[in-house]
């Protein structure tokens, strides 16, 4: 199965995960400094910054895109509860 490496910059941990894993599945378990609200892509509490490797992330869904726009997120931001890691090296931090 294809793998991806996700580095949580704030706590200095890299997790090797199966491609397709949602960021929230990793960030919650590893104890990264990301907080969570609805976990359904509506509240934007889990907005995080993709420091590098955005090209390895899933495309924004219509819902995620709407919520990010409403919260004036920059192009480097994603919702941990929605974004999936598809492969390669991705570095994230609380945003």
């Amino acid at each position: 199965m294809p793998k991806a490496n996700v580095t949580f910059e704030d706590i200095g941990v890299t997790v090797t995960v199966p491609a397709g894993t949602r960021l929230i599945e990793i960030s919650e378990k590893v104890g990264a400094g990301i907080t969570y609200g609805c976990r359904e892509g509506e509240c934007a509490t889990c907005m995080m910054k993709i420091v590098s490797g955005m090209e390895h992330m899933s495309e924004r869904s219509v819902l995620e895109d709407k919520v990010l726009q409403e919260n004036m997120a920059g192009r480097h931001h994603r919702l941990a509860c929605q974004a999936q890691v598809l492969g390669g090296e991705v570095v994230v931090r609380p945003g």
Partner: peptide, 21 residues
């Protein structure tokens, strides 16, 4: 060590993380 930036990055797998949790 974290405060002084002397910690090397920890690398773990999802399986190890699941087991820890």
């Amino acid at each position: 060590l974290h405060l002084t930036g002397q910690v090397t990055r920890k690398v773990i797998t999802m399986e190890e993380l699941n087991a820890q949790t």
